[in-house]
Write a protein that binds this DNA or RNA. Structure first.
Lengths: 343, 343
DNA sequence: CTGAAAGCGCTAACAG
DNA sequence: CTGTTAGCGCTTTCAG
């Protein structure tokens, strides 16, 4: 590992001069600049960002805390975030917590110890004490939260209007004549679950459709839980004619259950998902879903983060996205064939 | 940000003593230990790993270079790698290159500058000059390659026997009576593509089945390319009765094409994938595929990496995994219905 | 068992 | 325009 000292010796200048030309800070004559650059090339010098970080108190790295990269929503999100961060010169520490608050706390400590310049959280729990504690202990550290709400804390939030999204999904189903619509939710502690359930109820109430408690389920954001719960739902005597899944992943599970039970989508069962992840177009029939603008969200997250780091002032910024319905092939008007009696 | 100095003052000891008790190095009396720990707690001290890194020349971080986290194979792999690394106290810098060598080179430099303790590459190109250059410039840096072969370089390799895997896939298809079997490959510069194609030819030759050049395609490891090429293949007059896809992702594209063309899997078309990713069980019918032991590979990668870092000696270690056929629902004997004339 | 001191590699005043 | 110097926060001999 060659250091700045050796470069200085090779170029016959002082280390500060080397530092200057490499950082393009301060004045340096063309001639010395050239000498330095030549020495750098000759020795194949690669400056140590860790030493620089120590001085500048800037590591040029960000922590990204998500539940699980295997979940398609987070891999899509992580990709844009990493891309954007990289284009601003930042690297990303990837942290998978499985929504485990203990694990999350450990990661937070580690990230702080490693001197990250900011932390991005995606989909925190509703009652996430770690974030509150983090902000209390390190009020200066820029934080952006994707899909969480902490009105009392000075941190940045990127949210999507889940209630609105769910409402749009439900209105679509109701417009198609469905009345027996089930909701398969995710964790009861997540914003996404809670708010999408609110949108579900809102639309139903608005149309005066009574809510059937048996049709409302909260479980996990996994394919497996979509499968399990759809199996149960679709084997009832009064099975629903439509299912609104809290996420595309859950919808994938619903498809699997329907296929096993020989229930055709969309003829015998309409389904709408949420996220418009990669899955939506892969499924057959292609999934009608609510589009969460993942790329835009990731982009904004980094923009806000970078701005916060550069300006060194901690303010609260909130950006809200409105999701839209993407109509594909998984829904159908009930008169056109959808019926619980058709099996 | 409270420093070790303040802790020392609070505990009324020297900073070296604080360092000692925090690192559990050297002797310290129970009493001073307690004093220090109390001060740490009181001040909510969090040691700076970047300062420590500078002294110890160990950042406790690893670089992970992959093509794209959105690709299910890499998100599955990344998850195990991150988990395992974390359990050894390491963090991961995630780097997506899209197989762009220029981008890869930039990431490598950045990782070096940030002082990573090792770099893990997944699925490098066959002719990856960056890795050679890296090893020349930093022979001491531990490197592990997943799915690549650099016999001349002193680095660790985790490989799966792709030829064997493809051979098993093909034998399965041939045993079912198929003769018109297409191969949809990925990038021609990737080991996976090349070797799986070798296995394809090997099996065909062994059974004396002539190879139809029209049935062999190389493109990308994307769903989209599976789709595009299957569309073409399946609209030929002499369309294949089976398709061996180079990866599960590509198989997903094949499914999509088949569905659009109203070709039933497995009755009219058998398909086998490769990887046994999350997709395999999601698809309907569930995909018969070759299982790449992703978790085991990730685990071994970290084990070897950690060992290399700890022992500070650079040796070449190679581990080979044999993939196996996982029979599910996407293949069928040709007599039982599979026929190119049945459309 | 504990403290003083040197120094990791770099940056940033401050002189010159 | 360039060199000297003082640290950044920590670990680690080396004395005591």
């Amino acid at each position: 590992m060659v250091t700045i000292k050796e470069v200085a010796k090779e170029a016959k200048v002082s280390i500060s001069t080397v530092s200057r030309v490499l950082n393009k800070s301060g004045y340096t004559s063309e001639k010395t600049k050239e000498k330095v650059l030549n020495a750098v090339k000759k020795l194949n010098y690669q400056g140590s960002l860790v030493a620089a970080a120590m001085k500048k108190k800037q590591t040029l790295t960000l922590g990204l805390i998500i539940p699980d990269i295997k979940n398609i929503f987070y891999s899509d999100l992580t990709r844009t975030i990493e891309d954007r961060a990289n284009s601003h010169g930042f690297n990303i520490f990837l942290c998978n917590t499985d929504n485990n608050l203990q694990k999350e706390a450990e990661y937070i400590h580690l990230l702080i110890a490693k001197g990250v310049d900011g932390i991005i959280f995606s989909s925190p729990e509703v009652d996430d004490g770690n974030i509150k504690e983090l902000k209390e202990n390190y009020p200066e550290l820029p934080v952006v939260i994707l899909g969480g709400k902490f009105p009392k804390l000075i941190l940045n939030e990127i949210v999507v209007d889940n209630v609105d999204g769910a409402y749009k999904a439900m209105r679509h189903l109701l417009d198609l004549g469905h009345k027996d619509i089930a909701f398969i939710g995710g964790d009861l502690e997540s914003y996404a679950s809670i708010e999408r359930h609110q949108g579900y109820k809102l639309a139903l109430n608005e149309r005066g459709v009574p809510i059937n408690d048996d049709y409302v389920i909260f479980d996990k954001f996994y394919i497996q839980s979509g499968y399990k719960n759809a199996m149960r739902l679709l084997q009832k005597n009064d099975r629903p004619t439509a299912i609104f899944a809290v996420s595309d992943s859950v919808a994938v599970g619903v498809y699997k259950a329907a296929r096993e039970l020989n229930i055709r989508i969309p003829e015998q069962l309409s389904v709408v998902g949420f996220d418009d992840s990669q899955y939506a177009e892969i499924l057959s029939p292609m999934l009608t879903t609510i589009r969460t603008p993942i790329n835009e969200m990731g982009q904004r997250a980094i923009e806000i983060m970078v701005k916060a780091i550069k300006e060194k002032q901690i303010i609260k910024e909130t950006v809200l996205f409105y999701p839209n319905l993407i109509e594909r092939e998984s829904t159908m008007a009930i008169e056109a064939g959808n019926s619980k009696r058709m099996t």
